[in-house]
């Protein structure tokens, strides 16, 4: 059971990293990436190929991060001058191309058989017994570092500029922000994080094959970002954890209803993800924890969702204007 939990938690941290990447690209900058799984696969294969050549962990991970960042920049460059719809199409195509390459270039990627025997970092030093625990701690440390960097970035001028681009790129560009460069940077940053996630995925089972990088990985990241609140890194961790545990719970459905086989359980899981995605978009688009704002609204609700707040203050002012006392007081403008 402990072994199962450590594995699940390690997988949650990989999933959280992928969701972080999407959060930078989509949550903060409004660029949808449907090819996330392809980016993660790229990172994983680069890591695997370099470590299998006998290089150490650090150069391999660095190469994966750089490769994914460069690829992210290139992919966004194709459609960065156009509306976001086109970028989504391009990323979907990119993901498909990566999948095809990993499947068909057997000389490089092992094809459908995958790449076995990827050396896990520091396994000689730690030993097999405690390794899973060590690996989990390592994963959580990586997630914590990325989280810290992203929290700082969000509050930095760069993060504010990204959100400005997301909310209205025309306004951002007329205020002198270079929208093009900002978008490319955001996409490259997201790409770098997927590279990291890919490296962790490669070390997780010390084996990779194309079937690990399916659209479910992408769907899961979208689910986590929407559930956690777009643009909010804190909410995202909460979202990632709760969804992973909900989905893992469906594994035990099999014990309850034994008519279902594994394929059907997997199908049910994906139906839940899809339906949950739609339901969240319709009923709770702001997610569990709303994103960071420069000025948090004061008051007992502190940080409540913006839409009802706006409506409420609108109603309040409407009421106040009809109030006789209010008409007597001069408004601040005058």
């Amino acid at each position: 059971m402990i072994g199962y939990l450590t594995t699940i938690l390690a997988l949650v941290s990989i999933a959280a990293l992928i969701a972080f990447a999407l959060n930078v690209q989509w949550g903060m900058c409004g660029m949808v990436n449907f090819g996330l799984a392809g980016f993660v696969a790229l990172g994983a294969y680069v890591t695997a190929l370099i470590t299998l050549q006998g290089w150490g962990t650090i150069p391999a991970v660095a190469a994966a991060v750089v490769a994914c960042a460069v690829m992210g920049a290139l992919v966004s460059l194709i459609s960065v001058r156009l509306s976001e719809d086109y970028l989504a199409i391009v990323t979907l195509g990119f993901g498909e191309v990566i999948r095809l390459v990993t499947l068909n270039e057997a000389w490089l990627t092992g094809g459908a058989m995958g790449l076995p025997g990827i050396p896990r970092p520091l396994i000689d030093v730690i030993g097999d017994d405690q390794y899973e625990t060590f690996y989990l701690v390592g994963c959580i440390a990586v997630v914590a570092c990325v989280f810290a960097v992203l929290e700082i970035t969000t509050r930095a001028p760069f993060g504010r500029a990204l959100r400005a681009v997301r909310d209205d790129d025309l306004v951002a560009s007329s205020l002198g922000k270079d929208v093009l460069i900002l978008r490319i940077k955001a996409f490259a940053l997201g790409g770098a994080i997927t590279g990291l996630a890919g490296a962790m995925q490669a070390f997780q089972f010390s084996y990779i094959d194309p079937s690990q990088f399916t659209p479910i990985m992408t769907a899961y990241a979208f689910m986590a970002v929407i559930a956690g609140g777009r643009g909010s890194h804190r909410g995202l961790i909460l979202g990632a954890c709760s969804i992973m545990f909900l989905l893992e719970a469906t594994r035990f459905l099999k014990d309850v209803i034994d008519v279902l086989d594994n394929a059907q359980i997997a199908a049910i899981r994906l139906i839940l993800i899809g339906a949950g995605l739609i339901a969240l978009l319709i009923y709770r688009p702001q997610g569990l924890i709303p994103e960071y704002r420069m000025r948090a609204p004061a008051g007992p609700r502190g940080g409540g969702d913006p839409a009802p707040d706006a409506r409420r203050t609108g109603a309040d002012t409407a009421k106040e204007t009809t109030h006789p006392d209010y008409q007597m007081t001069p408004s601040p403008k005058e």
Partner: peptide, 16 residues
């Protein structure tokens, strides 16, 4: 994004 969600539902209803 919603259409992507819908695509998961439709595809996996078939699979189920």
């Amino acid at each position: 994004v919603a259409s992507m969600g819908l695509s998961f539902v439709l595809e996996n209803v078939c699979r189920l």
